[in-house]
Design a protein around this nucleic acid. Structure first.
Lengths: 145, 145
DNA sequence: CTTAACAAGTTCGAGACTCGAAGCAAGTTG
DNA sequence: CAACTTGCTTCGAGTCTCGAACTTGTTAAG
């Protein structure tokens, strides 16, 4: 066990995350977004089949009541819509509205600008991604349940 | 600008952080710790000179009222003590108690066990750290503003 | 078919987290 | 000394998260 290395890596990852979030919080607030709502927008890929509430909750590692709360905020701001799934009328898919699409793009631009990760050169960026890919489940594996 | 890569890297970092936190939250709760209090313990290095409230707030990227709140919780649980700085009697240093020292060690063990980062082999771990070190200010640079 | 068990979302209430504003005591400057 | 600044605290409000209970819809057993 390389416990030393793991501790250092956890600390570094944590710091990068906090720097990114701390830097982006201000600009995102001007878009009317809180950290939680911005994070939820990240989880909604425009090109994929609209995910159910449950799928999104899994992606965000939060529970159903929490996602209901966040989805309400996004819906109130006109960024998402809940559409019933015809194959299972209990389920509702979250889809981005036209405005939601634009705001999401802005969120990602703003976050990239705020993140120290943007300072990495392409080689380091590629290496970093290849390493993290080994331990991070892909989006596909974060589907329902 | 490799915006694509930056987006992917931010997403991956975010996911690793959330997996680590989600995995550790349960065990930490059994130690009587919330995410915020556990995070604060990480920022208190036993081997360094006890940092002031302000220094710790900077490290956690939070403001003074927030740190007062978290420090209260740690103090109530007997994990830290506030000791006045004789050179500036406005300032208070946070020091770990004996119990705080032990709990902190347990927090780090638990977090390491919960983190997917522990699955990396030593080479990848070293590479990851060398890349992140390029963009993360070291602890020393996070002293009093 | 009917009943029981289960699953997706929601609502509600409580606790945790974060921050701006205001205040206090101590240090600094002129 | 007076004015200003700084470290910290308190207070109040808003955000975030979750367990419990409920509604609606689906599935399984008999």
């Amino acid at each position: 066990m390389d416990e030393q290395g793991a501790v250092a890596a956890i600390r570094a990852i944590h710091e990068v995350f906090m720097l990114t979030e701390a830097g982006a919080t201000g600009p995102l607030a001007e878009l009317g977004l809180t950290p939680a709502t911005a994070q939820a927008l990240w989880a909604l890929e425009p090109d994929e089949e609209p995910p159910s509430m449950k799928t999104v909750a899994n992606r965000l590692h939060c529970n159903a009541p929490n996602l209901s709360f966040v989805a309400d905020q996004l819906a109130t701001r006109g960024l998402v819509q809940r559409v019933p799934d015809p194959r299972d009328r209990r389920s509702r898919a979250l889809i981005l509205t036209e405005k939601g699409l634009q705001v999401r793009a802005q969120v990602m631009r703003t976050t990239v600008e705020s993140s120290p990760l943007s300072a990495l050169d392409p080689d380091d960026m590629a290496t970093l991604l290849s390493i993290l890919d080994k331990i991070v489940p892909t989006l596909d594996r974060l589907r329902d349940s």
